[in-house]
Computed example of a mutant assay.
Amino acid sequence: MDVSSEMLISAAQKLLCSRKKRLSPSTCLDVTLQIMAVDLGIKTALLYDSNAASPEQLQSFLNSLQESGFVTSSLRILSIDDNTFIFNPATIESHLGDLLQSKSLLLIDVCPSREQPVLAGFEKKTEDMIKSLLGFFVNELDKGSSVIVLGEELYNDWNLCTLFGLMLGYPASYWFDQTKGFGNCLCMTPLVVCTVWVKWQIRDINHRCCLYSFSVPEELWSEVQSHVQRWTEHLRERFNKQPILTDLCFSRDTVTLPSVTL
């Protein structure tokens, strides 16, 4: 692919143009790399939050990446409550199916009524949400639409924080009772932040990008460490099957914040 970083940056800035924010060159390369990671199956989905580009603009950018050979899979776009995801149908269906079979998703209850976060079990509500989401994908993908909209009638009773963690393939997701509010008990709670970095050599530059970033309360780390380690090993296995991205790197830091918005 004889395409320079300048050509990719120019295409992203043109096709993802927003009145609110013009993408920086670094962000353009980040977005391209993360879409490629979704295409390669090492990232289940990308939550696009770089600017206010519409799903239709994202589809145009996806088309340009496919035309230039950077994307080879038939990626789709999902809109949920004004949030936009880019996902690989095969990867997301396999991921959700594995969760239903293994029931291995870790849920962390951070309801504000609690003094501290606790691990929650794989409850029927969570199982029903995953089944409904999987069924929705199967039905909608058969229709062949490039941009899919998840209606409020389906997700109205779901915790979107948990749902987004599912979509993004995190090993653990936060949960709170949204019927009682959207606060949480993470204020001044030490959090272990796990980050995954990769590099991409594109002809004239070597670009480093954050592929995953998620947190777990430090006081629960000893209980979830082995689960996160298995997730890490599985990610490494998928990463080693592709030849494009390099230098997979894992880091871990502990932070304490006066407030945490989920």
Results as ranks from 00 to 15, higher is better:
Thr162Arg: 11
Asp177Met: 03
Asp109Pro: 03
Gly151Asp: 15
Asp109Glu: 06
Pro171His: 08
Glu140Asn: 11
Ile148Thr: 06
Asn206Val: 11
Ser146Asn: 09
Gly135Ser: 06
Gly121Leu: 09
Ala120Val: 01
Glu140Pro: 01
Asn184Arg: 08
Ile202Met: 07
Tyr212Val: 03
Arg208Thr: 07
Trp197Gly: 03
Val198Ser: 05
Val118Ser: 13
Val216Trp: 02
Glu140Asp: 04
Lys124Arg: 12
Asn159Met: 05
Leu154Met: 14
Asp177Lys: 05
Gly181Lys: 09
Thr126Cys: 13
Ile148Trp: 00
Ser145Trp: 00
Ser215Leu: 02
Asn206Ala: 05
Gly183Trp: 00
Leu133Glu: 04
Cys161Lys: 08
Gly165His: 06
Asn139Met: 11
Tyr170Asp: 01
Cys185Gln: 04
Cys187His: 12
Asp157Met: 06
Ala172Gln: 03
Gln201His: 11
Glu153Leu: 07
Val147Asn: 04
Trp221Cys: 06
Gly165Asp: 06
Phe176Thr: 10
Val118Ala: 12
Ser173Asn: 08
Trp200Lys: 05
Phe122Cys: 05
Leu119Ile: 15
Ser113Gln: 11
Gly165Gln: 04
Ser222Pro: 00
Cys187Ser: 11
Leu186Glu: 04
Ser132Ile: 02
Asn206Gln: 09
Phe137Gly: 00
Leu220Asp: 08
Val149Arg: 12
Leu160Val: 04
Leu220Thr: 03
Arg114Thr: 00
Asp177Cys: 07
Lys199Asp: 13
Glu153Asp: 15
Glu223Ile: 03
Val192Thr: 14
Gly169Trp: 04
Val147Ser: 01
Asp204Glu: 15
Asp157Leu: 07
Val138Arg: 15
Leu119Arg: 13
Glu127Arg: 14
Glu223Ser: 12
Leu134Ala: 11
Trp197Lys: 12
Leu150Phe: 09
Thr179Trp: 00
Leu134Lys: 05
Cys161His: 13
Leu133Pro: 01
Asn139Leu: 13
Val110Pro: 06
Phe176Val: 07
Glu140Ile: 02
Pro171Ala: 09
Thr126Phe: 09
Lys131Leu: 15
Arg114Ser: 10
Glu152Trp: 13
